[in-house]
Design a protein around this nucleic acid. Structure first.
Length: 295
DNA sequence: CTTTTTCCCTGGACGC
DNA sequence: TGCGTCCAGGGAAAAA
């Protein structure tokens, strides 16, 4: 399931392939991809456009054309883009194909058909993204204090708040669980109850989890693949996601599995205590000493 | 405004 | 072997 690290990896691999190239022709096989627009019309509009840049914002892939138009791609759960020089392999899950002016093709495949392509006119992109997305977590202006502002007054579980793209852009179910483990924060903690020290840990945990994911070129569980077909390897580094019953890397306690906000949620019951309930609001004493005792 | 719920969509895992 | 059921989950939209 492509989250920020996966989309960033795709962007990095696709940028040199697409930049400067012209879309010779586009075929859209699945009408759902561009709904509510007509597939044939969108395909015709895309034909002839030349790529100026390939960028990313949150989980969106942004293909900027020299005309000022933008193709905004969201891979959702199972979308992927594949670049090939030969004739594209037959694939029952192919949803669209872009023929480039150098003879190569970019195929879009998507098993579950949740992904979307949206063609935007010049000037439409920025307001669209502002409406939907919060801070870019790896951007310099995303700080622990800024995170605190976004969480203030929110009673929802911290996990739900982090999954909300308007809080922070790009976190999904995997990296939220990983970040909360790194920050040693229970996924059900009310977002507004996260104190200063915890905010610092969470800020670092978010960045560390995402950066690890990018360094490993994302996590391949089933459908995600790089544009050349290679797999990411972040799934080998998961601390909690999908590891129910396995020992926590920090303390050895079996990882617990629950459901938060309708999502499968994994955490370490020892490292990520629920605490902080009604009683002791335990002011932010710098409990700097007495960290964890490894294993 | 915030939060919760439902729905979309397919295929793999599992029970019988 | 085959069928039914559950699960995976990002985000839009509607409900609360």
């Amino acid at each position: 399931m492509p989250e920020l690290p996966e989309v960033e990896t795709v962007r990095a691999k696709l940028a040199p392939v697409l930049t400067g190239r012209r879309f010779e022709s586009v075929t859209i096989d699945d009408p759902r991809l561009v709904r509510p627009y007509e597939p044939a019309e969108v395909a015709a509009e895309l034909a002839g456009e030349r790529v100026a840049a390939v960028e990313r914002r949150g989980k969106y892939l942004i293909v900027r054309f020299e005309s000022g138009r933008v193709l905004l791609i969201h891979l959702r759960m199972t979308g992927s883009l594949r670049h090939a020089n030969g004739p594209p392999a037959e694939d029952p899950h192919r949803r669209a194909v872009i023929k480039l002016d150098n003879g190569s093709d970019v195929m879009y495949r998507d098993v579950r058909r949740f992904g979307t392509w949206l063609l935007l006119e010049p000037g439409e992109l920025e307001p669209y993204l502002v409406r939907k997305l919060g801070d870019e977590p790896l951007d310099a202006l995303f700080t622990a204090a800024r995170l605190g502002e976004r969480l203030a007054g929110r009673k929802a579980p911290i996990k739900a708040a982090l999954l909300d793209q308007r809080t922070l852009a790009g976190m999904g179910n995997i990296y939220v669980d990983e970040a909360l483990w790194r920050a040693r924060i229970h996924p059900l903690r009310p977002a507004e109850s996260i104190d200063r020290n915890e905010l610092r840990r969470l800020h670092r945990g978010i960045r560390a989890a995402l950066e690890a994911g990018i360094a490993r070129q994302g996590s391949t569980l089933r459908d995600y693949a790089l544009p050349d077909g290679a797999s990411g390897s972040m799934q080998k580094e998961f601390k909690v996601y999908g590891r129910g019953g396995e020992p926590c890397d920090r303390c050895g306690t079996p990882i617990a599995k629950s459901r938060v906000g309708g999502r499968g949620t994994w955490f370490c019951p020892t490292c990520q205590p629920e605490r902080g309930q009604a009683a002791s609001s335990s002011s932010s004493r710098p409990s700097r000493s007495r960290r964890h005792s490894s294993v």
